[in-house]
Amino acid sequence: MTVKFTILGFLYYKDMHGYEIITEFNNLVQNQWPLNPGQVYSTLERLERDGLVESLGENNKGRIAYRITEKGKEALSDWITTPIKRPLLREELYMKFLLAGNKQLTGLEELINSQKELIIKQILILTDFKKNIDNKNFKKIIYGGLLHLEADLKWLEYIKEEM
């Protein structure tokens, strides 16, 4: 879903072929979001089939460039303005906690400790990343990630206190 609209987002600014889209994508997400190149080409074909983009034919290197259509622009604008809903309670970590808490499964303490360890690692890695990049918007994304980690850490500390 995201890949589909991200491609439309790139084509909104300029006509591009698949390889260019992959490069732009990796730059935009600072290589933090693994992308399967095959998925880009298959998505472009599907977008063309659905009339959201049109093919401009092959260039001399055999690469096919695409252009966004009016229908594509409308779909993009709908997507951009629609809020996204995060799963709040349906999380694997919470499921583990419920099972271990209710059914006397052992391992809750080990889970909490290893989860905390992982969160600390992620905090340090993200902070170091934030410190070392110049991209202002991406710094803001990292701040979002850190706020989630802060909430997770607080929750773990709360669970530990209650044990």
Partner: peptide, 10 residues
């Protein structure tokens, strides 16, 4: 390091 920090900060 993370394991160590986690237990130190517990």
């Amino acid at each position: 390091y993370a394991e160590y920090l986690a237990s130190f900060l517990a």
